[in-house]
Design a protein around this nucleic acid. Sequence first.
DNA 1: CGACAATGAAAAA
DNA 2: TTTTCCTTGTCGC
Length: 273
Amino acid sequence: MPEGHTIHRLAEDYAAAFAAGTPLRVTSPQGKFADAAALLDRTPLHTTDAHGKHLFLGFGDAEPAEWVHIHLGLFGKVTFGPAPAPPPTDTVRLRLADATSYVDLRGPTTCALITDPEKQAVHDRLGPDPLRPDADPALAYRRIGRSRTTIAALLMDQKVIAGVGNVYRAEVLFRHRIDPYRAGRDITAAEWDAIWADLVALMREGVRLNRIDTVRPEHTPEAMGRPPRVDDHGGEVYVYRRAHLPCHICGGEIRTADLAARNLFWCPDCQRR
DNA sequence: CGACAATGAAAAA
DNA sequence: TTTTCCTTGTCGC
């Protein structure tokens, strides 16, 4: 579900579903996006883009001047299917369809028609995204390295770094044995470089597999002789949603707490202050 | 069938 | 810091 890797994968999948230049049927059965859908109807999808958890669908024959800005929030979902599209349920905010396939969007926090400058404004308020080739990790460290806020909260702040959600936050801190309550300014430049490089690798793998896997080969269920555990997020993890279960590495109890309005998970033995 | 939680973030207070 | 938006899968009755 929707952390940055999901959104980048959606950008790829939307682009792959519809050949450039093919006019699409654009509808909003649910109604909230009906006016904009009518404007876009019978125009082709030209480009897709993703930054953090924000998805942009550019419509038009040439350089898109208009974009559909989508943010899935906590509940948003996208489903792909082959033509003919089934009758839409009344929760479908946006349906794109052509002769071969359809894509339905449900429950997004944001689905709005925006201009090029408005799209740029979204980019401007987001931090570097490990999945974007133009991302500059030093920009994020400039804020982290001088902040008294905990590293766990900073990793969730999209202005600091874009695309990391609750799963990647918990997992990357575990993989680097960093206590989630450490202040950002106590994270060394070397530690940040390692965290960033790890996020780039983990999230790229997340896009490829369309799920979050963070467990190193030597700690997989097979390697450790335990049964595989596939959670709702689809992958194998060290600490996320494993509260009160034994740590895969030290056997200690995984702890949970509220941090930055979300459930934090960590191993207090492996991640010492 | 209702209650509730869920990987998010903006608005309101 | 709390409330609100919005949908769906799961759990308990």
